[in-house]
Amino acid sequence: MDAPLIEIKDISFEYEETKALENISMKVEKGDFLAILGPNGSGKSTLLKIMLGLIKPTKGSIKLFGVDSKNFKHREWIGYVSQKSNSFNSGFPATVEEVVAGGLAKKAGLFRRLPRTVDEDVLEALKSVGMEAFLHRGISELSGGQQQRVFIARALVAKPKMLILDEPTVGIDHQNVQAFYDMLAALNREKNITLVMVTHDVDTVTDRISHVACLNQTIHFHGFKEQFQTLSDEERASWYGHSVRKIHHVGGAH
């Protein structure tokens, strides 16, 4: 059996003497589509940053693809899509093609040029997010939703085994959020890409995911979405801090 793609053991993280995460243990298996839910300030983004190796936990250990994260060398296996509003340098004079090709920088390696197949790789990645027609457009000319699709293409171009997404729908209008999650679900299903996503869209996302983790400094729930759906409103409210709308399905889950 394959090792879990992410295996977190007893992780805690303190930021300026404030506990952000406490005794977190969880696994992400190959093929999972995990949504990490939690209120603002619950440590969701911190947990993602620990998974990505951007910050070190105060205690505990993390394995990526069965290897201790300190010794993990294949960062290109993990694609990252950050919150657009936090990260992207708006107004940057680059085309969609250039931005997506940037996703191959780590895979190509230091002191090496991008692979000869870069044009085809970029086009294929853009096709998988339905953005191939925008190849030569300037990145800053696109809408928030289109930009976020381009950033997913940038993460996909290196053919990762797993995507980590931090609130990817921030800045996307409500109408396009559904289509955006459909696209992610298709990537998970058809390309077998494991997805770990922090989100607030509890009601929108539940139909598409396989697993849910509920975080508020510590893990309150981690399991299949079907188990999550059986939780009562009171149970959720007890760790969420306020009531969370219960999800009613029309036509059953995928």
Binding site: S82, S87, K106, R113
Partner: peptide, 23 residues
Amino acid sequence: VIFFKELFVLSFDDEYAKASGLP
């Protein structure tokens, strides 16, 4: 010339550059 692709990624989105394991 040597670090063009890394400099481009770093300039466009430094958090992404760090997360993708670039030095």
